[in-house]
Design a binder for these strands. Structure first.
Lengths: 181, 181
DNA sequence: TACACTGATGACAGTTAATGACATCAACGT
DNA sequence: ACGTTGATGTCATTAACTGTCATCAGTGTA
């Protein structure tokens, strides 16, 4: 993180990272599958947290409510570390390769959530859509939170984004099917 | 595409591609910024198509309906080339690096759609969420279409997915805010 | 014809991410 | 003392990219 912030991601070589850490390149690649993965090592924990939240949700909730609860749980867990998350995000935003890696982590998270929903008995198109919608909310809310005031609560932004999405998708022409021919 | 299908993406070197095309490596990298980009050169056209659809939509439509129309327009354009799209998708699905690139193209598409909505006067959180939801629908529907029967119409799958998402996000506990303590 | 300019390509060297193979060394139990 | 195991170092190699200069075809102009 120190080197990435100082001189950027591309300009930092693995040799430099290894030297600063007192290791060799080879050891670096034993710990991280590639140069980007250093910044995403903790993504697995977040995914497990959200999947657990899905599993722990009451059976009475609708699929989307279950996902919403998982997203809020993730927001709570990320509460105190706003500064660290912000630095990390700054590094990621400055580099396209890192953005790609972030996106695939989110996609994996979406699949995991969908899978957890299916295990609860939700049908597949519904499960995937609810999960993807949840990821979309998470992404948008996170960005609003990072760019917003320093004392804002991520959970509040998430709540608000969930409500907004709900309103948006309701405001449709009732029963009218899109024509396409 | 020939080499990627024969031996996979990782196992195909740029030198081999260049040789088959009767060019040098250097020339390959002058046409494509990196090895993956060969498969995504046409993504820009699709994005322009969808942005145009957003701009051309009647002012009376809700933001989500506008996005839905753009997604359907993309589905129509992709109608005849199912076989080619399927081969391409098979190559992409078999490799994580290519999945990453695909995701960032979709993310760029999402931002472009959100921007087009904002130009129509839609507020920012609403625009981003509508766009992201549209992308989610597109992704889920496209996957269902690719894996589904060969004679299926992508536009129909998209229509159905849009309707499903609409239903999902409506089926919430009315007015109840998620607790997170 | 001669000349200048431009754009695309080739030729070549160099950097760096990433991987495989083997050696070393400390910790641990028997 | 001995073998095992896990983490690390060392060395060699592949292949993605990049910088730089040379070449060459096409085009306009005197």
């Amino acid at each position: 993180m120190t080197l990435y912030l100082e001189r950027g991601f591309e300009e930092t070589t693995v040799a430099e990272i290894a030297e600063l850490a007192g290791l060799t390149e080879r050891t670096f690649f034993r710990h991280f599958s590639d140069k980007r993965e250093v910044l995403f090592a903790g993504a697995g924990a977040l995914q497990e947290l959200m999947v657990s939240a899905v599993r722990a949700a009451p059976a009475s909730l609708s699929p989307f409510d279950v996902v919403a609860r998982a997203v809020v749980a993730a927001g709570d867990a990320m509460g105190p570390g706003q500064e660290r998350a912000l630095l990390r995000q700054r590094v990621i935003d400055a580099n396209d390769d890192l953005k790609e890696r972030e996106l695939i982590k989110l996609a994996a998270l979406g699949r995991a959530l969908a899978h957890a929903l299916i295990e609860r008995g939700v049908d597949d198109p519904v499960a995937s859509l609810a999960a993807e919608a949840g990821i979309a909310v998470f992404r948008v809310a996170f960005e609003r939170w990072v760019r917003g005031p320093a004392d804002a609560d991520l959970s509040d932004v998430i709540d608000s984004s969930i409500a907004t999405l709900s309103v948006i998708t309701q405001a449709r022409e009732p029963g009218k099917r899109q024509d396409h021919g």
